[in-house]
Design a protein around this nucleic acid. Structure first.
Lengths: 345, 345
DNA sequence: ATGCTGTCTGTGAGCGTTCACAGTAGAGAA
DNA sequence: TTCTCTACTGTGAACGCTCACAGACAGCAT
């Protein structure tokens, strides 16, 4: 009994608010009011309009709406990483999925934007500042991203994933508690009786990398374990850098009995290096990761790691962004992490 | 009330076509003509308009344009897989990245749509048929997807990734040559002297799964090797099903000396099962994968596999979709694969 | 002169919505 | 009665663009 939306082939012209109004016996204005919250509309009209919408199969024309409201009712998901990252890092994928779903709950479409090259970056910045999206979810492990600054100056609502460098107060961000997560992991390694604990850090020009290292040092100091610079090397979150990092640690400090690797992907690389060096995990060396990405369960042995709550992070990012679009001030949200014990420790 | 334009920064009202026209000393119509290809515009006007555009920083308002053209100049990337797939399968990520870039080259934004649940599916179908995107790139390993059929009936331009089941002539698709790829791999295994070659197939309700199995059988028959049903088990492209499949093969045919696994992800699982069973790869059992996804290089040993040219696939999908939006008939494109030799054979 | 091309340009209309405003009806107060 | 207040409804603008159309002007033939 519902509308049979035309036969095969050819797209029929969709019904407008006018058709709905005629069908319901009311004016355009009333239909519009029903569509936008239904305040100051009589129950009878409300009912008639809803029935007419169902009958005609009406769906609002977002372009017409946007033209007058100035909003686009869509938001951009911007990745400023070089593109290989997207391939390699499972975290991005989870984040993307969760953000898409969080936005879908608000009926807001997500536009995927990849700014790998300088050209793309310009094109996208231009697109965004032209007002084609209402706000931007920004993912970039390079902190102090020039794009962030540029968008902020243009007055574009923006939420960053992960703590940004420098003038943090003016830009919104959502991040996991890196320092606390690192503390948990190192405490866990200590509790296993390990004392020669190495670390492969993240990039030290990013707050995330710095904080995880800080947590590591803090706990060791508290426990009265001497901090040995030969046990500290830095990576860039990539698998390859984890492998190289572990190799370096093994040569600098052959007596290492545990290693905290600041991302699961790097930890996978570290496992490879350790295996090649003939160290058994976890018997000879305990390995702790960070993220709880799919890499953690895929590797053998499965990684003990620090879980970043990506679902909550995504939801918060969307919540903060929408609030900011609604006129609220930028906000920072830090979410707790959780130790997940598996086979590698 | 909330007219105060978002707290701090403040977004300036962007210039319109009118401003450009005034600046250039021409009419709106002329500016519009320059914007849309520049036919029937004098070189002098052309120049003046372009200068005015640069000077004012004008960017076209897509909503206003869409309102009148009826096009949205955006396309949807629709994933109808259950969501875990997105996590696990690196192919999706590559495809998504490549499609985004291919569209960016045409200055067309990509809307990411995830239809995991029935509710989401309905919401998205409604959104699409309302004309909010001009066309859809569909990824679904379940062939005969009801969404595809629904969109096709609504007259929405659609290109599927991978060969669809059944009424294939009316829907566009782009796929790698599954059968030929499988043939190459099995020939390769035969050339290594293997004769007891097992296979873990993809889902056999999908053409991709069927074709890869067909290629396997074809080459064995040609080579005069008897086809043994105990050497054939089926999976669903997931890592877990690869592991289970390899286990089943080992118990049904312990003399197996090679296995063709219809996806790299499953091959990873198979490697795990083989290692657990004490078989050395490639010494005891050669393992061949399919896809050349990141899983192939990440596993140890690195997988010999059949490369699917995802960059070309993406480009073709976009090309065919845009052609279809432009009024051309649906088209099917099959692209050649390539054998990539690594450590597992 | 007149007509006919072809190239180029300006103008009004209108796409489908929302928004501001004006208007109506009924209830209650003076 | 009359006035005010509240709840609701209808109407004419816009929003920024493209499209169809008409007009202008040059070149070249009649």
């Amino acid at each position: 009994m519902t509308m049979s939306n035309g036969g095969a082939g050819g797209r029929r012209k969709p019904p407008t608010i006018h058709d709905v109004a005629r069908e319901a016996g009311v004016s355009r204005g009333t239909v519009s009011r029903v569509l936008n919250g239904g305040h100051y509309v009589s129950p009878a009209a409300q009912e008639a309009v809803n029935a007419a919408i169902r009958k005609t199969g009406y769906v609002v024309n977002r372009h017409a709406r946007s033209l007058i409201t100035g909003r686009s009712d869509s938001i951009g998901f911007l990745l400023t990483e070089p593109q290989e990252k997207l391939f390699e890092d499972p975290n991005f994928n989870v984040l993307l999925r969760c953000c898409t779903q969080a936005l879908a709950a608000h009926d807001i479409p997500l536009l995927l934007m990849l700014a790998g090259t300088e050209d793309e970056r310009r094109r996208i910045t231009r697109y965004i500042t032209a007002g084609h999206v209402d706000g931007v979810l920004l993912v970039s492990s390079h902190s102090a991203d020039p794009v962030a600054e540029e968008l902020r100056e243009a007055g574009v609502p923006l939420v960053q994933c992960g703590k940004p460098m420098g003038l943090g107060s003016k830009v919104s961000y959502v991040a996991a508690d890196d320092r606390d997560g690192a503390r948990d992991m190192v405490r866990h390694l200590l509790s296993l009786g390990r004392r020669r604990i190495g670390v492969v850090t993240g990039p030290l020009d990013s707050p995330g990398g710095v904080d995880r290292l800080a947590g590591y040092k803090e706990v060791l100091t508290e426990a009265g374990v001497e901090i040995d610079e030969r046990l500290i090397v830095s990576g860039d979150y990539s698998r390859a850098s984890g492998e190289a990092g572990a190799e370096r640690l093994l040569s600098q400090a052959p007596d290492m009995d545990a290693v905290f690797v600041a991302s699961d992907l790097m930890a996978q690389g570290a496992l490879t290096a350790l295996r090649r060096a003939g160290r058994r995990v976890p018997e000879d060396v305990s390995v702790g990761g960070f993220d709880d990405s799919s890499a953690a369960t895929e590797s053998t042995p499965a990684l003990t790691t620090i879980r970043q709550p990506y679902d909550r992070i995504s939801n918060e990012m969307v919540r903060v962004l929408l609030a900011q679009i609604g006129g609220e001030d930028p906000a920072a949200v830090i979410l707790p992490t959780e130790l997940v014990r598996r086979e590698s420790t």
